[in-house]
Design a protein around this nucleic acid. Structure first.
Lengths: 119, 119
DNA sequence: TTGATATATTCCTATATCAGCATATATTGG
DNA sequence: CCAATATATGCTGATATAGGAATATATCAA
């Protein structure tokens, strides 16, 4: 088996940096394809391809507007990623670092007691 | 060019579901390879490979402990992902939905005024 | 209808998986 | 040193990109 399809879920779709840039841009509002391509200096076909992936995982939606197609961010699709990473929040909180240090000190103290008892 | 290497950054490393499961497990503390393999019912070589990827992007660290190698989560490596998704937080907040509706109403109202003036 | 603009799709190539299996390496106890 | 346990690496096959270039499709305007 190869790697999971980029269209399998938001995690995979968002692994590609250019797609993240597109999402950043769309956070400001609906945009047509060529606007995105021009802004980010990507070629139009590549933008269309990325947008297709983003659409398939539900991160963007489209609506026709004349000759243009306006792509709109669906930020909710990123919530699963946000939620998952949030469960690791402790690891970059100072308060947790301090707690961690504290627990380590306790452990060391217990170990010295053990050694005492052994003798 | 093919897809970016899984070792290019945390976003890519974490796109693989099994690696996320390993990280979830390591959130409880240091663990040896076989413990992980047994817990998640993965084959040992595959676990070693996944751990290698996670180590190369700095999401875990290792230390030898006798014959075992204890892997430890470095949760801070996930902060960039958390931070990035956080910039889209508005999109799944109710309060934002209400604000969005409100802005849309305002826009509609302005448009009707425009039409009045046109006539 | 025809031309022009905007966007999507197709074909091609080079590359990077991921799983499975076999095997190599490391560490410890005796 | 040798056997046993724990872990890492190498190889293969099937698959899925992502970019470039060319082309197809859609929509509007005259």
């Amino acid at each position: 088996m190869a790697r999971l399809a980029t269209t399998s879920d938001a995690f995979n779709a968002v692994a590609e940096p250019q797609r993240r840039l597109i999402l950043n841009l769309l956070a400001h509002g609906e945009r047509p394809v060529n606007y995105i391509a021009g802004s980010l200096r990507f070629k139009q076909p590549q933008v269309s391809k990325h947008l297709r992936v983003l659409r398939e995982v539900g991160l963007v939606s489209v609506r026709g507007a004349g000759q243009q197609r306006l792509y709109k961010l669906n930020g909710k699709g990123l919530k699963p990623i946000h939620d998952w990473t949030k469960t690791f929040e402790n690891f970059w909180n100072e308060s947790f670092d301090r707690l961690d240090d504290y627990l380590k000190k306790l452990q060391k103290r217990e170990k010295s007691h053990e050694h005492k008892n052994e003798k």
